Amino acid sequence: DEIHIHFNGVTIEFRGLTEEAKKALEEAIKRGASEEELKELARRLIK
């Protein structure tokens, strides 16, 4: 299970995320999180 985020022309790929983690990332994107914020969020979620 993986998710691809297209962000300002950059694709960020995450693997092994739970549904909750995906929802958290989607919410962050909707509120306009920066690419760095998304990566940091993903790091926290994957652990």
Rank of each mutant, 00 (worst) to 15 (best):
D1A: 13
D1Y: 14
D1F: 15
D1P: 10
D1Q: 11
D1L: 14
D1I: 12
D1V: 13
E2V: 15
E2T: 15
E2S: 15
E2W: 15
E2A: 14
I3Y: 15
I3G: 10
I3W: 15
I3A: 06
I3P: 05
I3V: 08
H4K: 14
H4C: 08
H4N: 03
I5G: 02
I5L: 12
I5N: 01
H6R: 03
H6Q: 05
H6Y: 02
H6L: 02
F7C: 15
F7V: 15
F7M: 14
F7W: 04
N8R: 01
N8C: 15
N8T: 02
N8D: 12
G9F: 00
G9E: 04
V10G: 06
V10R: 03
V10H: 10
T11E: 10
T11Y: 05
T11L: 12
T11Q: 03
T11R: 05
T11F: 05
T11A: 02
T11H: 04
I12Y: 02
I12A: 00
I12N: 01
I12K: 00
I12R: 00
I12W: 01
E13M: 04
E13G: 01
E13F: 14
E13C: 11
E13K: 12
E13H: 14
F14S: 06
F14L: 15
F14D: 03
F14M: 09
R15L: 14
R15H: 15
R15V: 15
R15D: 15
R15Q: 15
R15I: 15
R15E: 15
R15T: 15
R15M: 13
G16W: 10
G16I: 02
G16A: 03
G16V: 03
G16P: 05
G16T: 05
L17G: 04
L17A: 06
L17E: 02
L17P: 01
T18E: 09
T18W: 05
T18A: 07
T18N: 08
T18C: 08
T18K: 05
T18R: 04
E19T: 09
E19Y: 04
E19I: 09
E19A: 10
E20Y: 06
E20C: 07
E20T: 09
E20P: 08
A21I: 14
A21Y: 04
A21P: 01
A21E: 14
A21N: 12
A21S: 12
K22M: 09
K22P: 02
K22W: 13
K22S: 05
K22Y: 09
K22F: 12
A24R: 09
A24I: 12
A24T: 12
A24D: 09
L25E: 00
L25N: 00
L25Q: 00
L25I: 11
L25A: 02
L25D: 00
E26N: 10
E26Q: 12
E26A: 07
E26H: 11
E26I: 14
E26S: 09
E27P: 01
E27S: 10
E27G: 07
E27H: 10
A28K: 04
A28I: 13
A28Y: 10
I29Y: 10
I29T: 02
I29M: 07
I29K: 02
K30F: 09
K30N: 11
K30Y: 11
R31A: 12
R31L: 11
R31C: 07
R31W: 10
G32T: 02
G32H: 06
G32Y: 04
G32E: 06
G32V: 05
G32K: 05
G32W: 04
G32D: 06
G32A: 04
G32S: 05
G32F: 07
A33W: 08
A33K: 03
A33E: 04
A33S: 08
A33Y: 08
A33M: 12
S34C: 06
S34K: 07
S34N: 10
E35M: 15
E35N: 06
E35Y: 13
E35R: 02
E35C: 11
E36M: 08
E37S: 07
E37L: 09
E37P: 00
E37F: 12
E37Y: 09
L38H: 00
L38Q: 00
L38Y: 02
L38W: 06
K39M: 15
K39F: 15
K39R: 12
K39A: 12
E40G: 04
E40V: 05
E40L: 05
E40K: 06
E40R: 05
E40N: 06
E40F: 04
L41M: 09
L41W: 02
A42R: 00
A42T: 03
A42N: 03
A42P: 00
R43A: 13
R43Y: 07
R44L: 11
R44F: 07
R44P: 01
R44T: 10
R44K: 11
R44M: 12
R44H: 13
R44Q: 13
L45C: 07
I46C: 13
I46Q: 07
I46M: 06
I46P: 05
I46W: 01
I46N: 12
I46V: 09
K47E: 15
K47W: 04
K47R: 09
K47A: 13
K47T: 14
K47C: 09
